[in-house]
Design a binder for these strands. Structure first.
Lengths: 153, 153
DNA sequence: ATTAATTGGTTTCATATGTAACTATTATGC
DNA sequence: GCATAATAGTTACATATGAAACCAATTAAT
């Protein structure tokens, strides 16, 4: 039996829905720290990575937060200029440099983290405890599967 | 009792995870139609909207696919130049113009839809039937809730 | 050792996107 | 009816992003 007539209903199309949801959430969160702290999304992500995993090289940051090296480089340049991160060249391999938050950076980080977690908490209020776990599990599975699809065929 | 020490684990942080998942899925899908048909994501979305909801004005397109009018205008300009959509000025209100796919546009649309649905189907293979419905429901709830959070405080 | 290949990171260029200003047309207030 | 406001859509400018070229340092190959 041949395929039935296929119709694409954008509003029910999974890739589209994921995109719209992620964009809405990302913008809402950005609104919380953009104005008071003057950070872009990428800059904040770099700070979050450094705040959590002590010294990292730029490429390690990129791996952690799934961001290509050009984006990391630019975000770090901005953060260095504002004195929010510090860079120290690795003496054994002078191509790489380890990055960490400065005192100012740590102070800012400490103020943003509660905002971010608070927003996440409010967002999760849409779901019950059981549902949160379910959503997390399912979205993880989707992610892993999507990665598999991209790498193989 | 005061808050426990808060730590932000980016890799478990819902807004971040949504963003990474949506980006991966969106890029994977784009890879399917970008090269053969030379469409951007926004152009394809406009075509999908027009393919489904016969004649629409530019702002109606924008409402359907959650895209601001500038983005719609630019996508439509590109599609008009390639003869994939047709525009007709509304005679009763000459500010607006209704848009529809041209014959070429419909042909292209008909070739892309199965690619898109096929990808969605492969992606959904990560989940069982029950789980798909659960994920759809939960993500809908998240979306509605996120919209509420943004509109009020 | 000397050349070639790799890696970490930055810069350049071309394109995409968002905000605000602008044009044209229609609707509203008085 | 005329000034004002509102709406549909485009254009302009400034910023963001991605791909590729590039530089510097290290590693591998002969």
């Amino acid at each position: 039996m041949p395929n039935a007539l296929q119709a694409l209903e954008l509003e029910n199309f999974l890739p589209y829905r994921l995109s719209v949801l992620a964009q809405l959430v990302s913008e809402s969160l950005h609104d919380l720290y953009a104005e008071p702290f003057g950070l872009s999304v990428t800059q904040w992500r770099v700070m979050a990575a450094l705040g959590r995993f002590a010294p990292l090289t730029a490429s390690e940051v990129g791996q952690r937060i799934v961001m290509d090296k050009v984006a990391v480089s630019r975000a770090v340049a901005g953060l260095l200029k504002r004195g929010l991160v510090e860079r120290a060249t690795d003496l054994t391999d002078r191509r790489r440099a380890s990055l960490r938050l400065s005192a100012r950076g740590r102070a800012m980080h400490a103020r943003i983290v509660p905002l971010a977690l608070g927003y996440e908490e409010r967002l999760y209020k849409a779901l019950g405890g059981e549902e949160r776990r379910a959503f997390d599990t399912l979205s993880d599975r989707l992610f892993a599967h999507a990665k598999g699809l991209r790498d193989s065929p």
